[in-house]
């Protein structure tokens, strides 16, 4: 309990306090109360950036789900000892620094990079494709970074399902697909939602990928907050944006908990 207060409640409380004060001309906080920072956050410029972030992160989450669910399902079909190897392979990228993995994508995708040079060499394309420094590259980088966070909770949910339930469905005449759709998938919904939240949350706050793979041409809310603290020296406004993110994520968790409860209640 003590560390929850020290490491979670206090920092958020400090940020929340900052958001009601004014910025000093050269940084820091001037302790006179104002609500201007909140009004500013509703400016279409910043709402637009939030919209971009949510749209990109939702795309990432959806793609992670489409790739992650079949991957997790396939792993549960393996022999137990092979399952462990497969899970280690899923986590393996985390053993390398995130920044280095992101730079690796630059080496792969740049116009002088491996992919373009390979395609040029094979005569498939005549001019290098502009793969890097696009919103697509940002989605690609985030998807790659957070896909394991989708696979693991879905795997955990799937491996907990009693195999006899699926066998019973098939014995009663359901096709394999129907059994998957009507028996396995509903039982995996809570784990799937956890995976979606795990992917969406870090994606929406990420600022390294938009900077490196987006070439600084795509601004996400994480970049905006980072810039308020490190470049614009506007801590109060940065705090408002950070608080807005926290509120949004709490709502997201509440939604996830509610859906999970409903699904389990029906089961």
């Amino acid at each position: 309990m003590g560390y929850v207060i020290a490491f979670m409640v206090l920092p958020v409380a400090i940020i929340a306090t900052y958001s009601f004060f004014q910025r000093g001309q050269y940084g820091g906080i001037v302790y006179s109360l104002t609500l201007d920072n909140f009004a500013r956050a509703l400016d279409s410029l910043y709402v637009g950036i939030l919209g971009t972030s949510v749209a990109l992160s939702s795309t990432v989450t959806l793609l992670a789900l489409l790739i992650g669910f079949p991957t997790a399902l396939a792993i549960t079909k393996l022999q137990p000892q092979h399952q462990n190897i497969a899970l280690v392979l899923v986590i393996l990228p985390f053993w390398t620094n995130f920044l280095i993995r992101t730079y690796a994508w630059i080496v792969l995708l740049s116009s002088e990079g491996l992919l373009n040079q390979g395609l040029l060499g094979l005569g498939i394309i005549s001019d290098p494709l502009a793969l890097l420094y696009t919103p697509g590259a940002v989605v690609m980088g985030l998807l790659y970074a957070y896909l394991p966070l989708m696979v693991l909770p879905i795997y955990a949910a799937l491996s907990r399902i009693d195999p006899s339930l699926r066998e019973a469905a098939i014995d009663l005449g359901a096709s394999r697909f129907t059994a998957l759709r009507q028996v396995v998938f509903p039982l995996a919904i809570p784990g799937t939602l956890v995976g979606c939240v795990f992917v969406f949350v870090p994606s929406v706050g990420n600022f390294i990928v938009p900077e490196l793979l987006g070439g600084g041409k795509t601004v996400m809310v994480g970049n905006l907050i980072r810039d308020q603290f490190l470049k614009a020296r506007d801590w109060p406004f940065g705090s408002v944006l950070a608080i807005a993110m926290v509120v949004m994520l709490v709502l997201l968790f509440a939604l996830q908990a509610r859906i999970t409860k409903r699904v389990l209640g029906q089961g």
Partner: peptide, 15 residues
């Protein structure tokens, strides 16, 4: 004080 103007315009440009 014009620093705030530059910051805002920079955000408009990059985003």
């Amino acid at each position: 004080n014009a620093a705030a103007l530059y910051t805002r315009l920079a955000t408009e440009i990059t985003s």
